[in-house]
Design a protein around this nucleic acid. Structure first.
Lengths: 128, 128
DNA sequence: AGATACTCTTACGTAAAAGTCAAATAAGTG
DNA sequence: CACTTATTTGACTTTTACGTAAGAGTATCT
């Protein structure tokens, strides 16, 4: 496990631009340290980037991703805070289950599409 | 099953604006018929709207949703076309499986968050 | 030393997906 | 029929998530 990654190393690993990483920093999603003015990304930042990109793939906005990330690193906190986090996490999980159902439905429909196409291809071979 | 729905009925059912439905029409995703200038939505349009919103929940762009919808209603077509559709469908399915994995991972992490919070709550009750 | 490769900040630009507003029609109701 | 409510088109605006370009600093290679 490396101590530090440069910004370009990470853009190459994840196929994103430097602008994107700086944008995520501006948005408070990551907090690379500095040597002079240059950003140095630690393994923890790298994992955060993975989580951000995963959230993006699922269609979450930056704001939503920030919320999710903040749940991960919520400090011990007091009772009220803990309850709030538990509720938010439950909400997000419900949303994720809905998305999962959406995926299952779409997958099923696409499988039907494929079957229909294969069936039609078979027909064409017989007919021709 | 109703013959026609007005635009407002559908905005209420799906919690979207008229602007949104007109935008989807402009984008060629739906094709409501007209009585005079007024749009009348048929059950088929309603189902399309459901599919569009499902795609949106999964983070697909309008362009991607259009592609998916076009696969559903692809005509018999000739061999080359059929193969193209089969390939596209396979691609989309792969993408969906990735999203499903992302969901599983995020769900697992959020469950950990909840457990950690519950554990901390239990501690607080004992400690106090 | 010069070239090459990274990096920084600042600022303006842009595409997607609607939101908002105006002005005009149309339709349904007491 | 007047009134209200729904609908239309068209145009302008907004938000999000970056892209892009300028101008300057820094580090490494040759």
């Amino acid at each position: 496990m490396r101590d530090y990654y440069t910004i370009t190393e990470l853009t190459r690993e994840f196929g994103i631009s430097t602008r994107t990483l700086r944008f995520y920093e501006d948005e408070g999603l990551i907090h690379p340290v500095r040597r002079g003015r240059t950003r140095l990304f630690r393994p923890a930042d790298r994992i955060l980037i993975k989580q951000i990109l995963r959230g993006k793939r699922l269609g979450f906005s930056i704001a939503e991703i920030r919320e999710i990330i903040q749940m991960y690193k919520a400090p011990p906190g007091e009772v009220g805070q803990l309850r709030t986090i538990i509720n938010k996490a439950a909400e997000k999980r419900e949303e994720l289950r809905q998305k999962r159902k959406d995926i299952e439905d779409t997958l099923a429909e696409l499988e039907q599409v494929e079957e229909a196409c294969l069936g039609r291809l078979a027909e064409l071979r017989v007919t021709s």
